[in-house]
């Protein structure tokens, strides 16, 4: 249950993607996410899915871990896909019975929706799989640093983010420990209906809240003891450098995005039957 949480999980490896500058990775992730919604016809969607698969392959993150990140939203995808298939009308009608209509438009909408959500989750979890939380927050801080002009405390915000990410594994450990302790006292988390299952969580949630609050106080004290002040102007142990490979990644992505935009918006291409717009 708890082990399904993949946010902030890092998979140590030494792939091209692991070595990219985290700032470049964040920007490219955002670009790819926007791209998912540009895709409006089958060939470009297919190209996008292929690129996503290729990224997973290159990152050397085991397929099993990538699939694990989709698992929690699998039901949502399935449910919305079914709704789309049964209720959207348009295009050729394949099947009709009372209120259920299966049409080509419904099928395409369901397909696009599922592919988009899956790609979205895979790409964003790839970012956290290949970047350590510290690198990630460092990069976010750098990317947001222009906001300092508007007096936004970028450093403090990123510190809060670092701490939050830092405590995810701690809390997961804690949940495991408390769950085991309660299981050892015969607590049953598996059987019973929804209400009974929710009630069974109380013996975990109460101790978890108490220890989280304790952690927060202890951390604040420890930071005070080390004279922590807002760290703006501090130098860093690890400098971020944009290398030739980062520029290459940016260039390749630029080409890909341009191609995608052309495929979906340039009339001389979308006019071809092969690229017939479906949505």
């Amino acid at each position: 249950m708890v082990k399904d949480i993949t946010i902030g999980q890092y998979f140590p490896s030494d792939s091209i993607i692991h070595r990219l500058d985290p700032r470049v990775k964040i920007v490219l992730t955002l670009v790819l996410i926007v791209c998912i919604f540009i895709c409006k016809n089958i060939p470009s969607l297919l190209a996008f899915v292929l690129i996503t698969a290729l990224l997973v392959l290159v990152s050397k993150v085991p397929l099993k871990m990538v699939l694990k990140s989709i698992k929690p939203i699998a039901i949502v995808i399935l449910f919305t896909s079914l709704l789309n298939i049964f209720y959207i009308r348009g295009g050729t009608v394949f099947f009709e019975w009372k209120f259920i209509h299966i049409t080509s438009k419904g099928l395409f909408t369901a397909l696009f929706m599922a592919a988009r959500v899956i790609c979205l989750v895979v790409i964003s979890s790839l970012l956290t799989y290949t970047t350590t939380p510290t690198m990630l927050t460092d990069a976010i801080e750098r990317l947001l640093s222009p906001l300092k002009i508007f007096k936004i405390p970028v450093h403090t915000l990123s510190m809060m983010m670092t701490l939050a990410l830092r405590f995810i594994p701690v809390l997961i450990d804690e949940i495991d420990r408390i769950t085991n302790a309660q299981k050892a006292r015969g607590a049953d988390f598996e059987t019973g209906g929804l209400i009974k299952k929710a009630q069974a969580m109380i013996p975990i949630i109460v101790p978890l809240f108490i220890s989280s609050i304790k952690h927060a106080y202890e951390l604040a004290d420890a930071m005070d003891c080390r004279c922590y002040t807002d760290g703006s102007g501090r130098t860093r142990m690890k400098q971020m450098k944009t290398k030739a490979s980062d520029y290459a990644a940016l260039f390749v992505s630029l080409v890909f995005v341009t191609a995608l935009i052309l495929c979906n918006y340039a009339p001389f291409i979308t006019g071809l039957t092969f690229f017939n717009t479906v949505i």
Binding site: E174, R177, I178, N180, A181, A184, G186, P203, P207, S211
Partner: peptide
């Protein structure tokens, strides 16, 4: 497995964290 929990009582390290 469930019965074993009652026959073998296990008290973890820092058991005070289990109080709720």
């Amino acid at each position: 497995i469930h019965e074993a929990k009652f026959k073998v009582g296990l008290c973890f390290q820092y058991p005070e964290y289990q109080l709720f």
